[in-house]
């Protein structure tokens, strides 16, 4: 049987080319079931990624690669695994998913008829600056490109000016000094040539940019128990591979951006500002003082008990 799949945008790069696309293109081999996939990257369809959950629910697609930041428009609870400041590194990202993903799954099933099969992070979204900025406190008075509201709040709290801007325009804007700094993953930055125009990078992850796979629940229920187990196992394997690859890619891109070896991407000579305790404290403080309260309001309005559940799990682990 065939599954209609809405995938990542093609522009994502290696995770798309090496893992997700082959996984679905040879869906029978990946799952060990008698299945195939009609796989469409989201950017070739004209459908916006913010519509991911609505796509699964409508049943147009059986499986959708869900980008958590955009879909949090419809399901704010999805951000609970990745509030700004919650995950400065991969270890805390793993912990966040273990603690809070069950809550997210519940809401996806109840409100969006969606079975969440797994999640993985693109990787730490870090700060690239053109003027030399030594630490996060140095952002005071700087114009910083952000791509969602919680980052904007955080930049604001550091005394910077958040500037929302489309990804393709960022490189020029950095070059011409329209903005001073910009946030993204180091491999996206590498591919878009940001290090050409920036001078420094501060490797503190503002967030992890999660992605997940959702399957239409009705479709899921047509599978037998054995088939469900096989399907889940296949996605678990894919997730594990992507988690690992994501971390490797992050390390390599950081290395390449700063002229290190070995490097299979474009090599640049950015200065890496070693984050100090003050930086990690700033990020943690932002979580308590900034991103959690902002999210709390929106999430509780949409899902009852949302923020309380977060406090009991992630909040407790972080000592909030």
């Amino acid at each position: 049987t065939q599954f209609k799949v809405l995938g990542q945008p093609t522009s994502i790069g290696k995770i798309f080319d090496e893992l997700e696309k082959p996984f679905f293109e040879d869906f029978a081999k990946s799952t060990g079931l008698d299945v195939s996939a009609n796989y469409n990257p989201v950017d070739t369809t004209g459908i916006k990624d913010a519509e991911g959950l609505r796509m699964v629910k409508s049943g147009l697609f059986d499986i959708v690669s869900l980008r958590f930041s955009p879909i949090s428009r419809d399901a704010p609870i999805a951000l609970g695994i990745d509030l700004v400041g919650q995950n400065p590194d991969y270890k805390s990202a793993k912990q966040s998913t273990e603690l809070f993903l069950p809550e997210v799954k519940k809401v996806f099933e109840a409100s969006f008829n969606t079975k969440l099969l797994g999640v993985w992070p693109f990787g730490p979204q870090v700060l690239f600056c053109k003027p030399e900025v030594a630490s996060l406190t140095g952002l005071k008075g700087k114009k910083v490109r952000v791509f969602d509201q919680s980052m904007a709040n955080f930049v604001d709290s550091l005394g910077g000016t958040p500037v929302p801007m489309a990804f393709p325009e960022v490189q020029q804007a950095l070059q011409r000094g329209v903005i001073d700094c910009a946030l993204t993953g180091p491999s996206s930055a590498n591919a878009a040539g940001w290090p050409e125009v920036a001078t420094t990078v501060i490797p503190v992850g503002f967030s992890m940019a999660f992605n997940g796979y959702g399957m239409n629940l009705d479709r899921w229920n047509t599978l037998s128990a054995d088939q469900q187990a096989a399907m889940q196992a296949a996605f678990d394997t894919l997730d594990a591979k992507i988690w690992k690859r994501s971390e490797e890619l992050y390390d390599e891109a950081m290395r390449c951006n700063s002229g290190g070896e070995p490097c299979s991407l474009k090599s640049y000579s950015l200065k890496v500002m070693k984050p100090g305790k003050a930086d990690f404290d700033a990020v943690k403080k932002a979580l308590a003082a900034n991103s959690f309260p902002a999210w709390q309001k929106i999430c509780d309005a949409s899902t009852e008990g949302c923020s309380a559940a977060w406090m009991k799990t992630v909040g407790k682990a972080k000592g909030l």
Binding site: P76, Q149, A301, S302
Partner: peptide
């Protein structure tokens, strides 16, 4: 109808209810 059902709001400074 969906936007109302989900209390969707724009992920922007204004957080406008869609």
């Amino acid at each position: 109808r969906d936007s109302m059902a989900y209390h969707s709001s724009a992920p922007t400074p204004w957080a406008t209810p869609l």
